[in-house]
Write a protein that binds this DNA or RNA. Structure first.
Lengths: 209, 209
DNA sequence: CCGGAAACTTACCGGCGTACAGTTCGAGTC
DNA sequence: GACTCGAACTGTACGCCGGTAAGTTTCCGG
């Protein structure tokens, strides 16, 4: 494969390295040229596989949406329930921070990429399906639409704040001492759709007056 | 002031235009050179006021943190309660989307800027103060640390998802028909720290969709 | 052995951020 | 009114960047 002229596996190598760079320095300083130089190919080589810089980011987003959808699906099939799906969402964000950033930053991506649209829709379908399963958990969902937004927003918010370092920077993280981020997620999201047991663990204000 | 050579108010003009560009095209395509050309000055003129491209973004972030802190403070002094503080957070994000983006994207900003650190800390202090005021609303807060994270995350998540267009793109927005984003915020965050059934800040008629 | 397609190269363009050495202008000073 | 000084702004130059075009190398099916 790698014969000195043909890299042999350039597409995968570019995606992997791009994710590393973006994770370390953010999407702004990610450059095709320095990436290509690192991989020992000319700066136009990646263009053959991705078309453009935007194409690389699109491909990362596709990877990300597919992985996220697969994780949510697996979680649902394992009967993890909604809370664990939310935890999985945050776990995905911390496992693949570069993908997560790119997926939700539309100004980095191009429009009209069918592969991307399909991957995104599939992931979003899993997301909403997860929230709808709340009803099947025997929990009363009075305002279903609000529950979808609240569930998504709380895990997306935790993921975003953690990834941007603002949880640490704000001192909020210190309130938890050494607690793991996923545990923090469970406790926080649990306030919304808390563990059924325990009178105070559920949604405040719904049970008592 | 503006004598053909000296712009007279370049600093403010740059910040205003930068916010417009970032709001429209995101922080990644924002360029000092095109900005300067738009304002009719040489491309090195902004450097005198901001030092670098990063300096412009830092200045935007400072503006943003100060505005956010002022809004939260005003809201607290008006006795709005926590839920309304959260709504104000989302309102800020939609009012000043460029500032919001830059404030929470540390890879766009420099480190060690004292003005920025001070503005950020002040805003974060207001945020945490708002959540602590929950106790004063007569609501039992069993896991205070989790409540802080949950409250911040849910409004930050809504703001982020809305600003990146993912609320619309995912179809979630459609569940609410023509409902205003701030109302969506009230209903969703209300699931966490539900509307006080008393007179203080409750939003009547937001249940059941 | 051959021809086409895929993978990759070199050469080039304009735009970008930044550095540095000037230039213009208002305001204060004698 | 000339002199100075600092703030604001200009012009030029450098290297990196993404994108384009034309050419080269290698693989592979016939």
């Amino acid at each position: 494969m790698a014969d000195g002229y043909h890299h042999g596996n350039l597409r995968a190598a570019v995606l992997e390295r791009a994710a590393e760079v973006i994770e370390r320095e953010g999407p702004y300083s990610f450059s095709l040229r320095s990436l290509a130089a690192d991989l020992g190919v000319s700066h136009t080589a990646p263009r053959h596989h991705f078309g453009s810089r935007e194409g690389v980011l699109n491909a990362l987003a596709v990877e990300g949406f597919r992985d996220l959808a697969a994780r949510l699906r697996a979680d649902r099939e394992a009967g993890g329930g909604f809370l664990e799906a939310g935890v999985e969402y945050v776990r995905f964000a911390t496992d693949r921070p570069a993908h997560f950033q790119v997926m939700f930053a539309p100004t980095l991506l191009g429009e009209g990429d069918e592969e991307l649209e399909a991957a995104r829709e599939a992931a979003f379908a899993e997301l909403q399906g997860g929230v709808r399963s709340l009803a099947e958990e025997g929990r009363p969902v009075e305002d279903g639409a609000a529950a979808v937004v609240a569930g998504w927003a709380i895990v997306h918010g935790i993921a975003t704040l953690a990834l941007t370092g603002n949880l640490d920077r704000s001192g909020v993280r210190r309130l938890f001492e050494d607690t793991d981020l996923l545990t923090i997620t469970r406790r926080s999201a649990g306030l919304l759709f808390g563990p059924v047991s325990g009178p105070s663990g559920g949604v405040p204000g719904t049970g008592s007056g």
